[in-house]
Simulated assay, not measured.
Amino acid sequence: MPVRIRGGFATLGVALKPGAVSMLKGPDVADTLDRIIYYDDIFGDHTWGTSEQLMK
């Protein structure tokens, strides 16, 4: 599939390894199965946990 981009382009990938969510005091893993949850909805109330802070 050909892709063309004009101008700037940035991408960011975040991967949490097994056990990271519980260590970061995130939601119970069983509550997150088969769901898409925005990162900011989980950790956005922490100064270190917003998407904007990750991009810095």
Rank of each mutant, 00 (worst) to 15 (best):
M1S: 15
M1Q: 13
P2R: 10
P2M: 11
P2I: 09
V3L: 12
V3I: 12
V3E: 09
R4F: 10
R4K: 12
R4P: 02
R4N: 10
R4M: 09
I5M: 04
I5W: 03
R6S: 12
R6L: 07
R6K: 12
G7L: 02
G7R: 04
G8Q: 14
G8L: 15
F9D: 13
F9Q: 14
F9G: 12
A10I: 05
A10Y: 09
A10Q: 09
T11S: 14
T11K: 08
L12R: 08
L12S: 07
L12H: 06
G13I: 05
G13C: 05
G13Y: 06
G13S: 12
G13A: 09
G13F: 04
V14Q: 11
V14P: 03
A15M: 06
L16R: 04
L16D: 05
L16W: 03
K17V: 05
K17W: 04
K17T: 06
K17D: 03
P18C: 07
P18Y: 04
G19M: 07
G19C: 08
G19D: 05
G19S: 08
G19Y: 06
A20D: 06
A20G: 03
A20W: 06
V21S: 02
V21W: 00
V21D: 00
V21N: 00
S22G: 03
S22P: 02
M23D: 05
L24Q: 01
L24E: 01
L24R: 02
L24F: 04
K25G: 14
K25S: 13
G26Q: 10
G26M: 09
P27M: 12
P27H: 11
P27F: 12
D28A: 15
D28L: 09
D28M: 09
V29R: 13
V29L: 15
V29P: 09
D31G: 13
D31K: 13
D31L: 11
D31F: 03
D31S: 13
T32W: 10
T32N: 12
L33V: 15
D34I: 05
D34V: 08
D34A: 13
D34Q: 13
I36H: 14
I36D: 13
I36W: 11
I37F: 08
I37R: 10
Y38K: 14
Y38P: 09
Y38A: 15
Y39I: 11
Y39D: 03
D40C: 02
D41F: 02
D41S: 05
D41T: 05
D41E: 08
I42D: 02
I42K: 02
I42E: 01
F43T: 01
F43V: 02
F43G: 00
G44V: 01
G44K: 00
G44T: 00
G44C: 01
G44A: 02
G44R: 00
D45R: 03
D45Q: 07
H46F: 04
H46G: 01
T47E: 04
T47Y: 01
T47L: 02
T47M: 01
T47I: 04
G49E: 01
G49K: 00
T50H: 00
T50D: 01
S51C: 08
S51L: 10
S51T: 10
S51K: 02
E52M: 01
Q53P: 00
Q53G: 01
L54P: 01
L54N: 03
L54Q: 05
M55G: 10
K56E: 11
K56C: 05
K56D: 07
